[in-house]
Each structure stands twice: as C-alpha cells, then as structure tokens.
C-alpha cells in the first residue's frame, strides 16, 4: 500500500513508506467506502422524503405536468450500467497488463460523460415542457434527486479522469484504481434505484 510520508504534499508519484502492517482494506478504498456510505445515507434521506411526499399526495403524478421520459432514460440507464461493467473489465486487465486496461477505462469514462450530457439534454426539454423546480412537488423532487446524483456523477468522472491521467503516466497504484472504482460503482449502482423510484 503506497502511503505518503508525513508532510509530503503535491500531485505526482508517491514516496513509498515501508508499510508497517498490511491493512485488510487499503487506505484509499476504506476512506472512499466510508464516504460512499455517508453519501448513501444522503440518498436514503432524499428518496425517503420523496416516498413520503408521493404517498401523502392525493393525486400522483400531479396534474398538468409532463410525463417523465421513461424510455429514453432506460437507454441512458443501460449506458451507465455498461460504463460500470467496462470499468470492471479495465480493473481485471489492469492486474495482468496495464496497457490493455486503458481502452475499456476510456470507454467507461466516455459512456459516463454521455450519461451526464444526456441527462442535461433531458432536463432542458423537460423545463421547456413546463416541469420546473416550482411547478409541482414532482418537479421539485425530480430536479433535487436527479441533480444531486448528477453532481456525484460529475465528481466521480473528475476522479476517473485524474485516475486515467495517472494510468497513462504509469503513476497509478492498483489501490488507487480501486478507490476510483468504488466511487463510480456507487454512482452507477444507485442510479437504477433512482430510476425505479422516481421515474416509474
């Protein structure tokens, strides 16, 4: 497990400090798992608030609001899941041959970016059809939950991008790849749940 020595800062390869014990889970992965755990409770809060509002409403979905794009989003969901699977493939190859890991990694990054851009395109058309933050509870919750997910996706894509750059320079440790993976799997994994609860 590479670890910075005390006081070492800056971007670049890490000084190796002799590890004094072998952790069960590497530092970065454990830290990211804890972060993801806290984020999962954030989504749990948002989704349960949505479920309560939905259950308490006399009519659902609210009248006079456009229908959510269920079919197009299904395709987009598939793209996101495919991105997660490609990252898994990249991980497998990374263990054997670091060069061949790059292609599926870039593909995963590309599909993830496509997902975010497509969501943005959907938002623009929905706003054009009259679904806004203020138009109804559906609109408020839709933009809130999907927006929070999109922010996570953008942050995770940023992390994947940095990981990719390190990979190209040969600076990437396998535990660092695993750290980025955990975040992306979270973004990928929570989306089908949001799709089921918010869209359907």
């Amino acid at each position: 497990m590479p670890r910075r020595r005390a006081g070492q800062t800056g971007y670049g390869p890490i000084d190796v400090v002799e590890s004094r014990r072998t952790p069960v889970v590497p530092d970065g992965v454990l830290g990211m798992l804890l972060f993801v755990f806290a984020e999962a409770t954030l989504f749990a809060g948002l989704i349960s608030a949505f479920a309560i509002a939905k259950a308490g409403a006399p009519v659902w979905p609210p009248l006079g609001q456009p229908r959510l794009p269920v079919e197009a989003t299904a395709i987009n969901t598939a793209a996101l899941v495919a991105s997660g699977l490609l990252l898994m493939l990249s991980r497998r190859r990374f263990k054997v041959d670091r060069v061949s890991a790059e292609a599926p990694f870039v593909a995963a990054l590309g599909l993830g970016t496509f997902f975010v851009l497509f969501q943005g395109y959907e938002w623009v058309s929905l706003i054009g059809q009259g679904l806004t933050m203020r138009s109804s509870a559906l609109g408020s919750f839709f933009y809130l939950i999907v927006g929070v997910h999109a922010l996570h996706a953008i942050a995770a894509l940023g992390l994947l991008f940095v990981t990719w750059r390190r990979m190209r320079r040969g600076w990437l440790a396998s535990s660092q790849l695993a750290t980025a993976e955990v975040f992306w799997y979270f973004v990928v994994g929570i989306w089908p749940l949001i799709y089921l609860i918010v869209y359907l």
């Binding site: 954030l42 749990a44 809060g45 608030a49 933050m133 809130l144």
Partner: peptide, 16 residues
C-alpha cells in the same frame, strides 16, 4: 456519517 446524510438532504431542501 450514518446520520448526517438525511440532515444534509433536509438542509438542501430547506435552502431550496
């Protein structure tokens, strides 16, 4: 970490 998520969710909603 297990409890802060719902509050952050509420805080975002309150800010909105």
């Amino acid at each position: 970490m297990a409890s802060v998520g719902p509050l952050i969710a509420g805080a975002i909603m309150l800010l909105f």
